[in-house]
Design a protein around this nucleic acid. Structure first.
Length: 152
DNA sequence: GCCAACGTTGGC
DNA sequence: GCCAACGTTGGC
């Protein structure tokens, strides 16, 4: 099974928001990058994703979420009031997709970006690459387990 | 707020 | 198809 890392700005969607929703899913909309979209399209039901807070005081992994619905058209793309509006997308010809996610696991220990960088076992982690900006990246099972161990 | 890195756009 | 300009991301 494939594992993932997804980034979110806590001001947009913080992990605590997903915790509050409990078993109710949240749609993961607003992805406007082709590479990230294509990764999203390969996500399968039950896949697990590390939830990473970016653009904040303490960037890092805060917990794990599960994919509860595979990719389907993102309606915010044709909502003129949405900050993610894209005139090229329409209900008849959707350009962007979203998935649904749900809270899965809390980390008892926050795994900071510094911690990730300092870990010898995580040197190949895509998110640690220079200039990496992808909001969705695949993570190997080994890396996934390692990061969960750091957060346990 | 700065700036490096990268994706996208659009003129040619 | 090239590539410069521009916008965005995201750590610091």
């Amino acid at each position: 099974m494939q594992h993932w890392l997804i980034k979110s700005e806590p001001s947009e969607c913080a992990f605590v928001d997903l915790q509050r929703r409990g078993k109710r899913s949240e749609s993961w909309s607003g992805v406007r990058n082709y590479q990230a979209r294509n990764f999203m399209r390969t996500m399968q039901l039950g896949n697990l994703a590390l939830f990473y807070h970016s653009s904040c005081l303490e960037p890092g992994v805060v917990g794990v979420v599960a994919i509860t619905r595979t990719a389907y058209p993102d309606p915010t793309a044709w909502d003129k009031a949405s900050p993610y509006f894209d005139a090229r997308s329409s209900p008849g010809n959707p350009l962007w997709d979203m998935v649904d996610i749900r809270w899965h696991t809390d980390f008892s220990t926050f795994v900071s970006l510094d911690t990730l960088r300092a870990d010898n076992a995580l040197q190949d982690l895509l998110i640690l690459r220079r200039g990496n900006r992808l909001s969705i990246t695949p993570v190997t099972a080994t890396h996934f387990k390692r990061i969960c161990a750091l957060g346990a």
